[in-house]
């Protein structure tokens, strides 16, 4: 197993951990954090796989995708945080209403 693949598997692990928290945790801030961890995992996979180039510089296309991805992730997180604040103001709770409990 090469170093690049080790990094890629680590990224996959981050993605899986984030997905677990996204599904299981009810608190919306935890869900937003989970989405960010999933995104970081995907970025790590992309940059790690770009490093497999035999010699010379790594593949620039995944790098370009990660750069745009990071900015989009930051913007999406800001939007999610404002939505979270709105949910708290409206319902008084930092979680989505549960249809089973009503």
């Amino acid at each position: 197993m090469s170093v690049a693949v080790l990094y890629a598997v680590t990224g996959l692990g981050l993605f899986s951990l984030g997905l677990y928290a996204l599904i299981v945790r009810a608190h919306l801030l935890r869900k937003i954090l989970a989405l960010n961890i999933m995104g970081s995992g995907v970025f790590l996979v992309l940059t790690a796989l770009a490093r497999r180039a035999p010699d010379g510089p790594p593949d620039p296309v995944p790098h370009a995708m990660v750069i745009t991805g990071i900015v989009v992730a930051v913007a999406a997180t800001a939007l999610a945080l404002v939505l979270l604040r709105r949910v708290v103001e409206t319902t008084g709770q930092p979680r989505l209403p549960d249809p089973d409990s009503e």
Binding site: V5, R52, A53, D59, P60, V61, P62
Partner: peptide, 13 residues
């Protein structure tokens, strides 16, 4: 799947 990828690949470089 990741472990099965070719260890050396230039991609689009």
């Amino acid at each position: 799947v990741l472990l099965g990828l070719p260890p050396r690949s230039a991609g689009l470089q």
